[in-house]
Design a protein around this nucleic acid. Structure first.
Lengths: 206, 206
DNA sequence: GTATGATTTGACCAAAAGGTCAAACTCACG
DNA sequence: CGTGAGTTTGACCTTTTGGTCAAATCATAC
C-alpha cells in the first residue's frame, strides 16, 4: 500500500477508480457477494494491482462506506432550526429524494449493509446517527409544541422520510416493474409533498 | 432427492427445517453470502444430507422465495372493493405492518433480493405483482373518482405503504439504534394511521 | 538519459465453498 | 426379525476466492 505521504497523480486516479468500482459492485452484490476480482476488473486494474492500493477487501469496503456516511447525513444536518418549520421539513424530504435519484448506488450500499444487520456500521448508527437525529428531533418537537406543525411522533416522522425516499432507490427494480414505462421520479415529489403537507399542517390552519 | 411421491414423516420434518434455516441464513446474508454448510448446520443436518433433499443452493433459495411470495401478496389481495374505502386502505396498511413485525425474516429476504436487482424474481414482479397492483389501483382510483378518498397518485400510495411498513423490518437495526429502548412497533401503528387518515380524508370532510 | 521510487503483473498458495458418491445406517412393515 | 426403501455421512473432487511475492515495467526528477 502506498505511503500516507502526498499521493501521486496515479494514486489519486486509481484510488478513485477503485472506490467507484467498489461502490458499483458492493451496492449490487453486497459485501459477501462481491469479489475482489470483479472490483478490480470494473476499475480497469488487475487484482494484485488493486491490492497494492488497498490491503484487503474489507479495507475497500470500509473506505467506500466511510466516504458514503460522510455525505449521507448532510441533508438532515442542513435542517435549519431557524427556518420556517413545514418548509424546512419539506426541503429535507426533497433533498433526500434527490439523493435517491442521483445516488442510488450509495443508497443501495447502505440498504445492503443495514438489511444484513449493519455488522460494520452499527457503532456509527448508535452514536453519530443517533446523536444527529436526537438533535433534530428536539428542533421538530419545539416546532410542534409551538403549534407551527401538527403533533406526530417525531422519530417516526423522520423514519418515514428515510423510508419513502430511499424506497425509490433501493426498490427501484420493483417500482419500475409495477409502474411500467412511467418515470418513478416524475410523480414522487408531488405525492410526497402532498403527503407531508397534509400530515404536518397544524389543525388550526386546515 | 426424494421422489415426488407421498413424502415421509422424516421428509416433511427435514424439508421444513431446511426451509426455515435457509430463511434465516438467506435473509441475513443474501444469496451469495449464504453457504450451504451454514444452512445445513442451522437445520441440524450435514451438508450432503441437506443436498439429499434439495439438489442445489439455488433450489433451496427458489423454494424459500416461492413459499414467501405465496403469502407476501395476501394483504393486498384482501383489499375489498366493496368495503369502506378509507378503512380498507388503513386495514391493508395495518396488515402489512403486522407482517413486518411478525415476519421480519421474510421481509428482509425480499429486500435483499430486490436491492440486488431481483435477478431471480424479476419476472414475477412484472407479471403477477404488476397485475395485482394494477387491479387494486383501479379500485382505488374508482374510490377517488367517487370522492370517497382524496385524489393522490394511486401507485405511489401503494409504494408508500410498502416502504413505510417494510422499513420497520428491513431497517430494524437502524430504527432501534436511533430509537433506543423504545419498541418501534409501539408508536408505529398510530403514526401511520394518522398519516394515511390525513392524506386520504377527502377535502369536503376535512 | 539514467537512477530511483512507484506501479504493474504472472505465478502461486491456502482456505472456502458447491457438489458427488459409495458405503453405512435406520426405519417401517409384512 | 428380516428386507428393501429411505436416510445419513466421511471422504473426496473441483472451482472460486482472498491474498502474497518476486520480478518486471514505468514515471519522473535530476
Amino acid at each position: 500500500m502506498p505511503e500516507a505521504r502526498a499521493p501521486t497523480r496515479i494514486q489519486r486516479k486509481n484510488r478513485a477508480a477503485i472506490l467507484d468500482a467498489a461502490l458499483d459492485v458492493f451496492s449490487s452484490q453486497g459485501f459477501r457477494g462481491a469479489t475482489v476480482d470483479e472490483i478490480a476488473t470494473a476499475a480497469g486494474l488487475s487484482k494484485p494491482n488493486l491490492l497494492y492500493y488497498f490491503p484487503s477487501k474489507e479495507a475497500i469496503h470500509a473506505a467506500v462506506l466511510e466516504q458514503l456516511l460522510d455525505t449521507w447525513l448532510d441533508p438532515l444536518r442542513a435542517l435549519d432550526p431557524s427556518g420556517e418549520p413545514l418548509e424546512e421539513i419539506l426541503a429535507y424530504m426533497h433533498r433526500k429524494l434527490q439523493m435517491a435519484r442521483d445516488l442510488p448506488r450509495e443508497s443501495r450500499l447502505f440498504a445492503n449493509e443495514i438489511v444484513q444487520g449493519a455488522p460494520r456500521i452499527h457503532d456509527v448508527l448508535s452514536t453519530d446517527l443517533k446523536a444527529l437525529v436526537d438533535e433534530k428531533v428536539a428542533v421538530i418537537r419545539a416546532w410542534m409544541d409551538a403549534g407551527q406543525i401538527a403533533q406526530v411522533h417525531p422519530y417516526h416522522l423522520i423514519f418515514s422520510i428515510w423510508s419513502l425516499t430511499q424506497h425509490y432507490a433501493d426498490f427501484d427494480v420493483q417500482v419500475r416493474a409495477v409502474l411500467g414505462p412511467e418515470d418513478p421520479f416524475a410523480a414522487a415529489p408531488e405525492f410526497m409533498e402532498t403527503l407531508y403537507r397534509r400530515l404536518l399542517t397544524p389543525p388550526d390552519q386546515a
